[in-house]
Design a protein around this nucleic acid. Sequence first.
RNA 1: CGGGGUGUAGCUCAGGUGGCAGAGCGUCGGCUUUGGGAGCCGAAGGUCGUGGGUUCAAGUCCCACCACCCCGACCA
Length: 570
Amino acid sequence: MRWSRYFLYTLKEDPAEAEAPSHKLLLKAGFIKQVSAGIYEILPAGWRVIRKIESIVRKEMDRSGAQELLLTVLNPAELWKETGRWESYGNELFRLKDRNGREYCLGPTHEEEITDLVRKVVHSYRQLPLILYQIQVKFRDEKRPRFGLIRGREFIMKDAYSFDADDFSAMMSYENMKFAYDRIFKKLRLNVIMAQASVGQIGGTQSHEFIAFTDYGEAKVGYCKNCGYAANAEIIPLQKPQPQEEEEKPIEKIHTPNVRTIEELAKFLSVPPSKILKAVLYMVNDREPVLVLIRGDRDIDENKLEAVLGTEDFRLAGDEEVKDLLGTEKGFIGIFNLPEGVKVLWDNSVYGVKNMVVALNEPDYHYINANPGRDFEYGEFVDVAEIIEGDPCPQCSSPLKVKRGLELGHIFLLGTRYSEPMKAYFTDQEGKERPIIMGCYGIGISRVMAAIVEQYHDERGIKWPTPVAPFELDILCLNMSDPQLTQVAEKLYMEAEEKGIEVIYDDREESAGFKFADADLVGFPYRIVVGKKVKEGKVELQKRSTGERWDVPMEEAIDRVKEMIAEDKK
RNA sequence: CGGGGUGUAGCUCAGGUGGCAGAGCGUCGGCUUUGGGAGCCGAAGGUCGUGGGUUCAAGUCCCACCACCCCGACCA
């Protein structure tokens, strides 16, 4: 490909709207263009990367025995009504009507459709097990699209679905996919950890996430270097700690005017935040008050709270509600003088803390040295604290590491969550009708592209790993008005094409510096510089990932590159 | 959905107190230049996010709306 004819235009300045490195660099290097919030066009260079990612995924899926097909984007509402998700999926679902008023949605995922397909075709245990998959554009009207390709409202996804006759077989399919995912992320050169996860909206009995470590990830994963445990932070349990051994001091009421936050209070009273009882008032179903008590140095993980409450319909109480219900202000909410009808939940972290600082629902006052059993009684204990670095591993109690990451893949053992309501039954060996056991397995293809950029870039641009690079080699002719140079460059370009290298020839009428800067930014793994060394019969070979450079005789250059590419792709 | 911010040329931005719409980069024409985003000369390019209001006069003041970005809760 000649760059002078190629639809690849880079930006000189950082795009104002981008923050995350992948977002910034993909825009700047001309891989994507924004159309509206969370909706992007993928330009030719970007599409080459996507297609390479897809082909790696495809190869491993096929190898695992899965079969590719293509489902529809336009899904009839009826299928979604069968599983109840037409309602429960909420505003995330893009809904529309045809000319006859019939309702559809743009597919955000395809459990319904695939189950419908399979129930129409599969009737016997002889047709199982079965794994089907597709690579397709998905639509989700996200509350908050962000970071470019990291969270779009329209994105490319590989989704696979397994169908088995019994639980054991389903487990085998699940394990099969686990291994396939492991191979896929290795081939994509991504640093990914597999973590236990919650089943969430999709439902099911078991799930794992594949999380790439990045600064702009939205997932938090806790993992243990000692025993290998890894899980999404929102499902890591925290037990009650050992009660503190400490002499109980007399309780005392202290005037704390305008001291509201934990930090202010800790400073004002000269106590560590861990001695303060933090009280947070939530409104469940818009009107049932629930008071959550947690240690002052801890935060509430609202995912855990959702699991405890059994509903996602809750929110922090407003200032007015706090005043109406408790007769006080935020900052002075406590366990004393609580009105009837306020449910109280104690987080495990509070257990056994002695000589606590506690508010009493009276503005500008706190108790110090409050002690359980003497000054107040515990209520129901729950686990709602956010995991922090150093918390004990639930398997071996070693301190956990906590890191941010980006969820690239998610696999679920669904059981009969879809086959039961949709009556996807088969006849077993005994002639009995039974629901098919299902699993589903997703990889965010376009998000993978962003994740690769997050893990492979520097201050000058992207450093594509060779297996996913838009082109493997960039030939730079530094002076297009020097016929000696253009002749050499042309020859190398032809030779590279002949030898099967994916090559782009920078034949643009631009200055040397311009071409170097673009080569760094776009991030081709190898570069051959045709410049003044041609007089000595040499060109310069450069490797983007390491910055290494070699002067090589012109006639050897392409073969050298070819070897290095082959090495990279192993 | 709650909180914060931004909308002016293709891009990045400047335009106290209302008074002729600007710069750099890019683009087009010409000359010169070619190992790290070159230089000179000339030119084109704008419903100042949209609608309304105040005013002799609005990019600027007021109201409403829209879009985009960032922080929080959901997801691949």
